[in-house]
Amino acid sequence: MKKCYKCGLKGVVYLPQYRIAFCKEHYLEWYSRRVEETIKEFHMFTRESRVLVAVSGGKDSLSLWDVLYRLGYKADGLYIDLGIGEYSERSRIVCERFAQTRGLELHVLSLGEAIATIPEIKRLEKRPPCSFCGQLKRYYMNRFAKEKGYSILATGHNLDDESATLFSNLLAWNMDYLARQFPLLPEGKGFVRRVKPLFKLSEKENALYAFLGGIEYVEEECPFAEGASSIGYKKVLSQLEEESPGTKLRFYMDFLRRLHPLLKAQEVELRHCSICGEPTTGEVCSLCRLRERLSSKTLSSSPSS
């Protein structure tokens, strides 16, 4: 292992795309600086902003919360309990312990109380769980942030997430999704500002930060994520990365620089859902429609149970 680029001590982490090594202390410093630079470059938020970090108990979101806290940002956490048995239980405990040891505020929103748990919805939905789960989380994160007066919603999306999404959107030439893929989605029309401060850091860089920073996180995958297509894209990209370090970052940054400015998201007319008031394209939002289907299912199945 090369010596630490900063202090000359034995390196513990080597970053191939930059061809440098760091000792533990200077890796943690490099990581925080990278996050801070990203926040400033994209004008994501300031130290005065009230930030809500969506935490899942995994390495990315907890590393994000940790680094924001260490950098002196005002960041509280939101854990959405999806009701996926032991997995959700353990994830919640990990988030609670994280918050407690740092004296941070964690909000917990139970999906089961708000609408229904993921396993309950899965019985009714034909779509893959990751698809409706993501939609539910986005709905409740946004709604919760607004209700509690947070102006910024930060998520732990990393470089692998973003480049895999970009890859899949390009394969399908999904122009509208491509136009909406950006590390900052501005507030307005019923949405709070959404930001991804970790989008330049790879999954491994986040896992290394969590490991070296002594952050306890849940390593197990969500039991419903088995065979999610994003894993396949991530593996393909990591093969390219291995042959040519820096490929993922270049792929994504050049997209932002060269293609994204040419794209225009389709203007969609948004109005307030007539039931819950959240932004939607139709009369009733998809979440309220799901809620209706859930309640009619319970009504129709109750006599037999």
């Binding site: 969506a54 899942s56 995994g58 390495k59 990315d60 979101s61 769980p129 990751c130 698809s131 789960c133 993501g134 939609q135 989380k137 998520t155 732990g156 999306h157 692998d160 997430d161 999404t165 790879s202 999954e203 491994k204 986040n206 896992a207 490991f211 390593e219 995958e221 969500c222 419903f224 994520a225 088995e226 065979g227 999610a228 297509s229 994003s230 894993i231 991530k234 593996k235 990591s238």
Partner: peptide, 12 residues
């Protein structure tokens, strides 16, 4: 062994 790759976070 730490495997950093994770899938299906529902684009959270």
């Amino acid at each position: 062994v730490v495997n950093a790759i994770s899938g299906g976070r529902g684009y959270f």
